[in-house]
Design a protein around this nucleic acid. Sequence first.
DNA 1: CCCTGATGTGCAATCGATTGCGCATTATTT
DNA 2: AAATAATGCGCAATCGATTGCACATCAGGG
Lengths: 356, 356
Amino acid sequence: MARSRPTLRDVAERTGVHTSTVSRALNPDTAHRLSPDVVAQVREAAAAVGYRPHGAAASLRTGLSRSVAVVLPDLTNPVFPPIVCGIEDTLAARGFLPIVANTGNDVDRYAAVFERLMSRGTDGFILASARRDDPIVDHCVAESIPLVVINRTVDRDGVSAVVNDDDRGAAMAVQHLHALGHRHIAHLGGPQTLSTGHARARGFKRATRALDLAAAEVATVFADAYRRAAGCRAALDLLRRAEPPTAIFCANDLLALGCYDALRELGRRCPEDLSIVGYNDMPFVDLLAPALTTVRIQHDEMGRQAARMLLQHLDDPAQHPFDVVLRPELVVRDSTAPLGRPKRTVARTSRPAVEV
Amino acid sequence: MARSRPTLRDVAERTGVHTSTVSRALNPDTAHRLSPDVVAQVREAAAAVGYRPHGAAASLRTGLSRSVAVVLPDLTNPVFPPIVCGIEDTLAARGFLPIVANTGNDVDRYAAVFERLMSRGTDGFILASARRDDPIVDHCVAESIPLVVINRTVDRDGVSAVVNDDDRGAAMAVQHLHALGHRHIAHLGGPQTLSTGHARARGFKRATRALDLAAAEVATVFADAYRRAAGCRAALDLLRRAEPPTAIFCANDLLALGCYDALRELGRRCPEDLSIVGYNDMPFVDLLAPALTTVRIQHDEMGRQAARMLLQHLDDPAQHPFDVVLRPELVVRDSTAPLGRPKRTVARTSRPAVEV
DNA sequence: CCCTGATGTGCAATCGATTGCGCATTATTT
DNA sequence: AAATAATGCGCAATCGATTGCACATCAGGG
């Protein structure tokens, strides 16, 4: 035992043919060039000795690995798993294996992970971790490495992206709050180094202006990360001001959870004292207390589109970069209520967890 | 452009030395055998041409890849990301890259993913997807492939595992419910093909017997998957019986969420009409309505232990398999209340999301 | 019956990095 | 100063799979 794994040679010797014949017999694309009985014999022998192709060797020779790297900024953010599932489904249908890596929102680890994935040889990248100004994206473009950015996009040109219409989504949130009578609406923004944080803040500003909400009424603070704790800090900042807002639009759901924490700390209630809107409609926010009103993005669809896009680039290296922009949807639940006349909590809009 | 990536040869020619010298200069372990100025020149040239090691080639020659596969049964279950983070931290410190793959609870995909990872060449496996009787685990043992199972273990011997004391955790849940006065306690069990489902059911049975709860009072139903929808179905089954339980111990948090769904469907309330205990204390269950009482497992620590274990096996192939059993902890929140005298919801035990 | 063409298989080079072995040069010892 | 040890580096084989090319065999047509 512990003998090294069987190779093409072992199968060849067992069958009495050459290794090249074995290689062809085992490859569905070349098997037709051989006589059927040889193919059958080879396959049988391969199964008998438990032959497994040596990916590194094949990859070395062909330069292809039939695997793509999926880089996430934060695995613990529940918004990403459904996206990954969409990617997986689409890639699996074409025989590609997605390799998921996590940067944990750390720039150094982002670089290290990319380096390792590159050297390990993946055919392409799907980056959910892109920053607006991203050296790694630049590098990929310069080296013509097949690449798709997802959810977050970059400022520069020449990169295929699957994103949401964050500007519109933000406007939907503001309009909803405005329709409920809110005038002191604040924005708990995300990092402005990320396209999502930037676009949602821009949409917020545009929408409040369009609705003639005085600038003073539309305070904006920025969290330094899409994290619950950062959201709490920023929310406390907003809520401790002289004239606190009656509603907050958060740039993502984790920040909204931070708002919940802040309210609890201050002994105030949602939605009675403050209406909160999140962004992403990540799994489980429908079960929170109160159930979170949020802007839903199409998780699975984003993943599927990104995977399809990357496959197009792999199939045709000349494929020109393009964008797919998905439309968000407002999901009204219990964390928003009319100003001064908070609605009673009734049967809330539920949404089952994503079934894989 | 689009010129193929630089190789050792390119660096060698540029420096005027042999490729083997370049190889040694770039490898910290062998650089000391060369004169310092050669090393410096080589490193400089390598950086200048943007040399990146070709992992597949190195892996082919050495048989090592410095990467380990982490196989998850269900990426969308929030209990796993924190575990993966623990694994990542520990592996990164030793220069190993974790490659995360997801089986989506699908046996065929499990096999396919394993096959791909094997052929791609990973130095070892951390399986969170093991079943009690798992052919893939058997295969790894037979082939002496370094392996650690995590969270779920296997019935067979000879496999290193990091698990929780599920039996004890279940007993803690039952004792808690019993102390609250509950006598009609049911168990919403997980799949019995998984060690977690099995051990938690066993712990439930043991604890109820020890407390002299009549067998009739301790109904048990099994969900066919750790999913919210499956939990809902099973809970409806329990709650529609002639003598429904006053408390349910669920084999994991997702099943508990299914209970919440079932209650809503029946128009009953938790904890007034039914006390619910979950298992795992996955992220965000502290924010649910009501905040979930659950058995907490040590997510990060599990990951760290498993990674350490695997590294031990990699360092010393003769390392004998061993187990690490972590102790669970009951976290009482608002989903459980004294029988017939439901407590008012007060400030609940909060727990911030895991900071990466 | 020979020639052409098709078909099936073998040969050997190749991908890029690693490493045991050996040679050459320099340092050390007596 | 000569013999020996130590150091620095090059040579070439190797890992396993793939693939262009060549060769052999056989079928069919003239």
